[in-house]
Amino acid sequence: MRNLKELYAEFLEMGAVYSQREFSRLWGMEPSWFSSTTSRGREPGIYPLCMFRIQIDRIKADTEIALSETDNEDEAEALTEGLEELKIIRDEMEKAILEKAMMRFSFLENKTIPNPVQASAERTR
């Protein structure tokens, strides 16, 4: 997956966002989330990834409408390129969501949860 700064640059170039604050909102987060996350070198968690993935579909739908309404060949080409890029980013987000979910699941799977009956018997010995 691309890092947040690369994704921000892509969405800025596409005209999907105009500021870091707006980009943070696409992730379902507070306006300062992007700058805070990138300055700390962190990666988005499952919740922001899922929210961003949902927003990609909304942007994709808006782009498809704009493409159907334009008569300008240059604009149609730019919109088509944007749609292709959105599909790639959507696939990257889905992969990142699955990877994070699998990491969480494997952590839970390997975590030993004590048997309460056994723990009680051991305390009374």
Rank of each mutant, 00 (worst) to 15 (best):
S19L: 09
Q20H: 11
A121P: 02
I65L: 15
I65N: 10
L83K: 01
I65R: 13
E122L: 14
E73I: 11
Q20E: 11
E6G: 02
L7F: 07
D57G: 12
L79I: 05
S120V: 13
F11V: 05
E10L: 09
R21W: 05
A16I: 03
A119E: 07
K111H: 10
A61S: 12
R104H: 11
Y8C: 06
M93Q: 15
S36N: 10
G28W: 00
A101T: 13
I46V: 15
F11E: 05
E99A: 12
M14W: 07
F11S: 03
I88R: 12
K100I: 06
A101Y: 08
R58Q: 06
L4R: 08
K100N: 11
D57A: 13
E64R: 15
E30H: 14
P44N: 12
N3K: 14
I113D: 06
E69V: 03
Q20I: 02
I89S: 06
F107M: 07
G15M: 11
T80G: 01
A96E: 12
T112E: 11
A121W: 10
P114H: 06
N110Q: 14
E22N: 05
L79H: 02
Y47S: 14
E85W: 00
G41L: 08
I97P: 05
P44K: 12
K60S: 12
R42Q: 13
L79P: 03
P116T: 12
I65M: 12
A16P: 01
E92T: 13
L49Q: 10
C50G: 05
E81W: 03
G15K: 09
A16K: 00
E43D: 12
K111I: 09
V17Q: 00
N110A: 13
L98A: 05
E122Q: 14
S24P: 01
G41S: 04
M29N: 04
S68Q: 04
A121K: 15
P44S: 13
W27A: 09
T37P: 02
A101V: 13
T70Y: 07
L86W: 01
Y18N: 14
S36W: 08
F52T: 00
S68E: 06
G28H: 02
E75T: 14
D91L: 15
R42P: 01
E99T: 05
L67N: 08
L98C: 06
E64C: 07
R104F: 08
N72P: 04
Y18H: 13
T37D: 05
E43L: 10
V117T: 12
A119K: 08
I59N: 00
E69A: 08
A16F: 01
E84C: 02
T70K: 10
P116F: 07
Q20V: 02
E10Y: 06
R21C: 04
E85G: 00
E85T: 05
D57R: 15
R104S: 10
L12D: 00
Y47L: 15
P116Y: 06
R25K: 11
C50E: 14
T38P: 02
E75R: 15
E22G: 03
T38S: 07
R58V: 07
A96M: 11
E77Y: 11
V17N: 00
